[in-house]
Simulated assay, not measured.
Amino acid sequence: MKEKMQWLCFRKQVWFQLSVMTMFSLFGMDCAFRSSGDLRLYESYFPHENQTAAIKQGKVRVTFLGTTSILLDDGETQILTDGFFTRPSLWKTAFSKIESDQNIIQSVLEKAKINRLKGIFVCHSHYDHVMDAPLVAKFTNAKLFGSSSTINVGIGAGLKEENMELFSLGKPVKLGKFSITVLESKHTPPFRIFGKTNATDSNFPAIASPLTQPVKATDYIEGGAFDFLIQHGKHKILIKSSTNYVEGAFDKINVDVLLLGIAQLSLQPLSFQENYYSETVKKLKPRLLIPIHWDNFFLPLAKPLEPNLKLGDDFDSNMNLLLQRTSKDQIQVQLLQGFESIDLF
């Protein structure tokens, strides 16, 4: 009888411990899948008005379309970075194959009034950048510019050779009054989630053959990362999608506007944070900085954008870090919601 009571007590103790462990695990998972920031804290950095009037001659308008999809428009010519609009859910991305949604892409093109697009420039070939770019090129008859990996995604989607162009680093591409120079960059430092990493396998550094959807998200290999220096008249814009830097790359460049990737910035070592700011913002000396790659791209673009998940980012810390430094340097910071537009100059 005594042994039986001891066994029952042991079972209860084990059950209690397992219950507590499960409860804490579920709590931790719930926290991990929450937003990493509260946009209400940054209300003063949003424009609260959307430019819809015709673009005046000489002006350039920017529209934020989530993640690092940036539309630039001078009223005559439009250029776009990435064009990632499908935004499949986290569960679909993690556990099944993914593919572009033509209906979503068409609806974004219509809502954003993308009707005179001449070029799509892909910053690297992970799925959240390149996945939809070939279909955007097809639907708009724009040319797709990218690395050999991006070109293979285009071939897999059936794009014709004349509708694609391999990046030529440092050589300006003229599209209307825009001049776009592609600069070599680095991807955000690798990270691990649930034991998996996004680091590029040195044995497979690029997408080496045509990639045809549907495929796994991991089939989209980085294939090199790139920044875009864009000149329009006397004004310059730099689009830096990834949170990393090449030392000395911007020593001789100043810009009016910097669109800066901030994903995972505060998760990096303090020395990296310091160097990132110094090698980008300090050297480029923009009058206006627009943070990009801050939103949760597992949610539809049709909804108000939310910050990245706590699972892999800390939006509040990223912004606090950025705002402290830009305030000292007297640089204006502007956040944009999905489909929001402002005139840059």
Rank of each mutant, 00 (worst) to 15 (best):
I155M: 04
L288G: 04
L117K: 02
L305A: 15
I207K: 01
L238N: 01
L65I: 11
F84N: 02
T188D: 02
F85D: 03
S242H: 05
R61H: 04
V281P: 00
F167V: 04
R87S: 00
A263Q: 06
I98E: 00
D38Q: 03
Q106E: 13
K56S: 15
V281L: 07
F297A: 01
G195T: 10
T63R: 13
L322Y: 02
G261D: 00
P205S: 12
F33R: 10
F194S: 11
I237L: 05
T280C: 03
T326F: 06
D256Y: 10
A199M: 12
D329Y: 07
L175C: 03
F46E: 02
L258T: 05
R325C: 07
F315A: 03
K160I: 07
Y245E: 03
A32K: 12
I262K: 01
Q334Y: 06
Q273L: 09
N296M: 09
P134G: 09
V108S: 08
L270K: 13
L90I: 05
N163E: 14
A225R: 00
L258S: 05
F272N: 11
D30F: 14
L299I: 03
P47F: 02
A199R: 15
K111S: 00
L284P: 02
F228G: 00
E43I: 04
D30M: 12
K118Y: 04
T212F: 08
L41S: 11
E110K: 15
K92P: 04
K174I: 10
N198I: 08
Q231M: 06
N275A: 13
Q332L: 12
I292L: 03
A142F: 10
Q6T: 07
D201Y: 05
P189F: 07
S271W: 10
L321H: 10
